[in-house]
Design a protein around this nucleic acid. Structure first.
Lengths: 150, 150
DNA sequence: CGTATTTATCATATTCGCATGAGAAAATCC
DNA sequence: GGATTTTCTCATGCGAATATGATAAATACG
C-alpha cells in the first residue's frame, strides 16, 4: 500500500513524535533503532524538513525534530511527499481518463473505497497512533482525554 | 493499489467475460483491443489458466476462455495470483510480525481499512463490473434486471 | 584554529517489476 | 505430412525504487 520510502518516513516521524521535547535526534540513532538504512533515511528526513514538518540542525547536538505538534500532523502530510494519493491514481483499471462523467467499469465502487483510504490518512494524526497503539478505535474513544479527565 | 500485472489480469478477465459464450479468444486479439503487451499478457493468462480460472487451447481456433460464470468469479481470485492481499502485507508500518496480539501503532485502525478493501475484492464479482459499468451501487440496484424486466 | 559531530549531496550499485524477442511445443487444417 | 495458428517458455533488456559509499558543508566545542 505504502512505498517503502513512505513507510520509513512514517515510522521515523512516529519515532520523533515519541521523543518530542527532547533534544534533536540524529539520523544515526533513528536509523539504528528502526533498522532503516542510514543515508536513505537521511534523504527522506531532508525531504520532510524541506516541507517544514521537521527542522534539521547540523553539528554536535544536531539532528531532527518535529516542528509541529503530533496532534496537528495528519499521516497524509507525512506520506504525501513520497506517494501520490489524490489525483491520477484513482482508477482501478488504470485508465488515464476515468472520471465520474466517463467512468470505467469499476469507477463508482472503487472510488468509494479509495475515498475511505484517503480520509483515513487525512484525518488520522500522528498523535492518534502514538497514544493509542493498535486499538481499533472503539477502545480509543473510551480512553479519550475528554472523557478520562473528568 | 494494484500492480500493473494484476491490473492487466483484471482487464483481460473483464474482456473475456464480456465475450463469454463465443469461441476462445486468442491473446493477440485481447492484447490489441486492450493495448496490453502481447507476450506479457500471454504469461499472465497462462498463470490464470494454471489456477483454472481460464482454459487455454492451442492451434487454429484456440485461445482463452473463462471456465466459470462471471457471477461466481470474485475480483480477488483474479488479482490474488499476482498481488499479495491477505497475509503479510497487512501492517501499515511494515512490521513482519504484527498481529492482533502484538499490534504495531497503527494496527487496529489500519486493519479496519484493509479489511474493507479485501472485502471489496472478495465480494465484488466480475459480473458486477460488466453489467453495471461505473455506478456507485445505488443506481445499480435500480437498473437491476429483476426490476427492469418486469 | 583544529577537531569532532552531524546533515547535505553526489555517484554508483542492487533489485525487481515490467516489457520485448525469439523460438519450442501443441493443435488444427488441407 | 506439411503449413499455419496459437499457446508455452526462455533469455534478455530497461527503468524506477531502493540502497550503499564517499565526500562536502555546516555547526559546535575546546
Amino acid at each position: 500500500m505504502l512505498s517503502q520510502t513512505a513507510e520509513y518516513a512514517l515510522r521515523a516521524v512516529l519515532y520523533l513524535a515519541e521523543h518530542q521535547g527532547e533534544n534533536p535526534i540524529p539520523v544515526d540513532a533513528i536509523a539504528e533503532d528502526l533498522s532503516i538504512p542510514r543515508n536513505y533515511l537521511s534523504k527522506i528526513l531532508h525531504t520532510l524538513a524541506k516541507r517544514d514538518l521537521l527542522s534539521s540542525s547540523r553539528g554536535r547536538g544536531g539532528g531532527f525534530e518535529l516542528t509541529v505538534r503530533a496532534s496537528g500532523l495528519p499521516l497524509l502530510a507525512v506520506v504525501e511527499p513520497f506517494d501520490e494519493f489524490e489525483g491520477d491514481q484513482q482508477c482501478l483499471l488504470g485508465r488515464t481518463r476515468c472520471s465520474d462523467t466517463s467512468p470505467c467499469a469499476a469507477h463508482g465502487r472503487w472510488k468509494e473505497m479509495m475515498d475511505r483510504v484517503t480520509t483515513f490518512f487525512r484525518e488520522t494524526t500522528v498523535e492518534d497512533l502514538i497514544q493509542d497503539p493498535g486499538s481499533g478505535g472503539l477502545a480509543a474513544r473510551r480512553a479519550d482525554p475528554a472523557t478520562t479527565s473528568s
